[in-house]
Simulated scan of single mutants.
Amino acid sequence: MAERYEIRFSGAGGQGLITAGIILAEAASIVEGKSAVQSQSYGPEARGGASKSEVIISDGPIDYPKATIVDACLAMTQVACDKYANGIKPGGLLLLDEDFVPNVPEGDFKVVRVPIMRTAQEEIGRAIVANVVALGAMIALTGVVAKESGLKAVLSRVPEAFKDLNEKAYNLGFEKVKAAMA
């Protein structure tokens, strides 16, 4: 049976986490040639309501396109954490935005806390790239695709004028998680 890895990005609508999931799926499938599927769910509110994006990556065919036992979950808000940080497998990973998720749920998983939104706002100067910071962080945390593959997928999606900004965001997210895990 092929190895199946399930990742869930969750936060508020408008934070770009569905796009982050799509980019991760592209890094796995287009750049690395693995099987990948991405799905999304969000409330009736276009902005502000809880939303999630799930990515399943496998070396072989994917028989079911929804996450069932999550290997790694990102929660950018407390509401998203309360709603979507369930179903993480024993020994799994939970990445939290340390400024927006004060209450850590109980569970048999490793918790890593990183200032994702603050990094985007203060170190890059643009909150809009928080999803790319989060993507870099999740790739560093999981190792599900190579760092270079994730960056290649990010850069293939952004206009030329924003490539440097997004590369900086991606690398900062990656570095923040590596430092938090050290």
Rank of each mutant, 00 (worst) to 15 (best):
M1K: 15
G16F: 10
G16S: 10
I18V: 15
G21H: 02
A27T: 04
S29I: 11
V31G: 05
V31L: 06
S39A: 15
Q40G: 10
Q40M: 05
Y42F: 14
R47Y: 04
S53F: 02
E54R: 01
E54T: 12
V55T: 07
I56A: 01
S58R: 12
S58K: 08
D63H: 13
Y64T: 08
T68G: 09
I69N: 11
C73S: 13
L74G: 11
A75Y: 05
A75F: 04
M76E: 08
M76G: 08
M76C: 10
Q78V: 00
K83G: 02
I88D: 08
I88G: 02
G91T: 11
L93P: 10
D97R: 04
D99V: 07
F100A: 10
P105N: 11
E106I: 13
R113F: 07
R113I: 04
P115Q: 07
I116E: 04
R118S: 12
E122C: 13
V133A: 07
A140L: 01
V145S: 00
A146E: 13
G150M: 04
G150Q: 05
R157H: 15
A161V: 15
G173M: 06
G173E: 01
E175K: 15
K176P: 05
V177W: 07
K178Y: 00
A180P: 09
